[in-house]
């Protein structure tokens, strides 16, 4: 991520602001920056979404392919995450520079989303032990302006909401050979239930309080996210995180439903919006 230098005076200014629940850009401690979501932005994918949060811009594309289920869980499909930190976002990602952050992000996403209750992976199963849907979720960082985790999780959720998996059915001939048939109707699709798909809420401790959706400046004030915390503040932060997460989910689902209900009338914004 782009390195930001803060002077002592700036630091004091930001910390005092946070103490009084008024941050540099006028937000309170538990407010997100302006967020924009657009789904169905890439036509070659089965589901896609673009999310901007402040100046952070994330593009997620989901492709569904038929694969073999893992032997441990024969009746479930699975998700594969890949996060690409493109050098567009910051020059530090050039070459192999973004690899480390990319693996960190994709490992976290895998941990958070690959959960029995978040998506019912059994709906991705085609025939147990033989075929299942594999969802390749590719995340592209277009611009970095702090709080990647939250923005990515929202984008993934929106893209999963937008995902349409073609319906298939299995026919069996006399000799017991199985064949997968794809439905003729391109609109005959399966949707995923994203009601329980989680959103990540990152909290940053600045001074004695914690803030949601920290900008790069604020993050630089909290030791760049590499300090230690006393147990009590961790408990407070989980409480805040839960509250903020709940407050984020409801409007997000509403926005996604609303966008979809517009259908073809929806005005496309694209990447220059």
């Amino acid at each position: 991520m782009a390195t930001v230098q803060v002077s002592e005076a700036e630091k004091v200014y930001i910390m005092h602001g946070v103490r009084d629940d008024l941050r540099v850009d006028g937000r309170g401690c538990e407010d997100y920056r302006h967020m924009e979501i657009e789904t169905d932005v890439v036509s070659n994918t089965d589901g896609s979404a673009k999310v901007t949060l402040g100046h952070t811009a994330i593009l997620v594309g989901i492709k569904a392919e038929i694969g073999k289920p893992r032997p441990m869980v024969a009746d479930e499909g699975f998700l594969e995450f890949f996060v690409d930190c493109s050098a567009n976002a910051t020059p530090e990602f050039e070459g192999r520079g973004g690899d480390e952050l990319g693996t960190e992000l994709s490992n976290t996403l895998y941990k958070v989303f690959n959960n029995r209750n978040s998506i019912d992976l059994r709906t991705l199963c085609i025939s147990p032990g033989e075929h299942c849907w594999v969802l390749y979720i590719d995340v592209l960082l277009l611009q970095c302006d702090g709080n990647l985790f939250d923005a990515i999780s929202v984008a993934v959720k929106a893209a999963l909401f937008n995902t349409r998996i073609p319906k298939v059915h299995i026919s069996e001939d006399e000799e017991g050979g199985k064949e997968i048939e794809l439905s003729d109707d391109p609109y005959d699709c399966m949707r995923l239930n994203v009601e329980n798909v989680p959103c990540i809420v990152t909290l940053c401790k600045v001074g004695h309080r914690h803030v949601v959706d920290a900008t790069l400046l604020e993050k630089a004030c909290s030791e760049g996210g590499r300090g230690s915390l006393d147990p009590e503040s961790i408990f407070e932060m989980t409480e805040t995180g839960k509250r903020v997460g709940k407050a984020l989910h409801a409007p997000l689902m509403e926005v996604l439903q609303k966008e979809e209900s517009l259908g073809k009338k929806r005005q496309k914004v694209g990447f220059l919006g």
Partner: peptide, 20 residues
């Protein structure tokens, strides 16, 4: 001795109180 938590990893799903 400083009573500071420097790392916390959590997998799976838990209620808030359970986590605490």
């Amino acid at each position: 001795s400083l009573n500071q938590v420097s790392g916390l990893q959590s997998d799976g799903e838990m209620g808030e109180e359970t986590l605490v």
